[in-house]
Simulated scan of single mutants.
Amino acid sequence: MAPPRNRRPGFSRRAQYGLFLGYVVAIGGVLIGAVLLLLSTFNPPAYAVVRGFFAEITTPISSGIAWATSGVAGAPDGVSQHFNVRAENERLRKQIAEDETLVARARTLHQENRRLRALLQVRDVTTDAVITARLVNSSASSTRRYATLNAGSWQKVERGQAVREAAGLIGQVIETSPNTARVLLIIDPDSNVPVRRTRDGMPAIAKGRGDGLLDVRAAGLSNMTFRPGDIFVTSGTGGVFPPNIPVAKVITNQRDSAVAEPAANPNSLDFAMVQQIYLPPPAPSPTPTPGGAAK
């Protein structure tokens, strides 16, 4: 037969113990409250001591509960701030990258403008300028050193004309088409430029090495001394390159020649000016004398 559904507490010792403990706790609480009430009424100092004791016990527990509660309550805000900070960092990184690109472009434009202004100053004092154009490419990775100018025969560029920038000589036009021209750079092994030393006028030949530098050798003289820092300019000999264009600066001297760096850096070319072929003035013709002999 099934046991009745509604059982009294007396049928369970566990329930009896629980009910008994509940009564004990209730009675104990009432007694403690009564004692505290009597202490607060008749002996306030003792009551203050008891209150401080319980405060010392309950304060850490209350603090831990408050900390846990505030941490749980602030968790959504912390997660939201984390993702907001990440998004802000990504935006700032992107902005920094864009700013760096703008700064690089600005520096490039500044350098181009500076070189163009320098070329304009050279053009203002030069009477044989043909055109100022852009060097669109150069063979920097090869021992043969050429460049392409975006101006050609339609712009009056001709074979043999000198190409320079403000800092010095770049090369010589060797081929032309309607809108482009091929330039042999002075650092090419096939390039030979008649030059002279500025401090004493000593004639020499500047020949390309193919590695970005020049070999300078004295023309027709032996046992000539080169000094680091010697400056060489075009001499005008041969009637191709106009005189007094900076060509090279000696950096080391060898036994019978010197290694020099070009005045115009071939690795940073952008704009260049083409000049007419230099033709030195003809020698004066001899004047006849009354006796028939020329002087």
Rank of each mutant, 00 (worst) to 15 (best):
P3D: 08
R7V: 11
R8M: 04
R8Q: 05
F11V: 05
F11G: 06
S12G: 08
S12F: 15
R14A: 09
Y23S: 14
V24A: 14
V25Q: 07
G28R: 10
G29L: 05
G29M: 04
L31N: 07
L31I: 13
V35T: 04
L37V: 09
L39D: 06
F42V: 15
N43I: 00
N43M: 02
P44A: 09
P45N: 12
G52S: 11
F54Q: 05
E56F: 08
I57T: 06
T59E: 13
P60K: 14
S62T: 15
W67H: 07
A68S: 07
T69P: 07
G71W: 08
V72M: 10
V72T: 04
V72F: 12
G74C: 12
S80Q: 11
F83S: 15
N84R: 15
N89T: 08
R93W: 01
K94L: 04
K94V: 12
I96P: 04
I96M: 11
A97F: 00
A104F: 13
A104W: 05
R105V: 01
T108V: 10
E112Y: 02
R114Y: 03
L119Q: 00
L119M: 11
R123E: 03
D124S: 10
T127E: 13
A129L: 02
T132N: 03
S139L: 02
S142N: 13
T143Y: 05
R144I: 11
Y146W: 06
Y146C: 07
A147V: 08
K156P: 00
V157D: 01
R159S: 06
Q161P: 01
L169Q: 03
L169T: 02
I170W: 03
A181K: 02
L184H: 02
I186R: 04
I186C: 01
I187C: 13
D190I: 01
R197Y: 07
R197H: 00
R199K: 11
I205C: 05
I205D: 03
A206V: 12
R209H: 13
G212H: 14
G212N: 10
L214W: 13
G220T: 14
N223T: 08
R227L: 07
P228H: 10
T234L: 14
T234M: 04
S235F: 01
P242M: 13
I251H: 03
T252W: 00
R255G: 09
R255D: 10
R255I: 11
D270S: 12
Y278D: 07
L279G: 06
P282M: 05
P282R: 15
T289Y: 06
A293L: 09
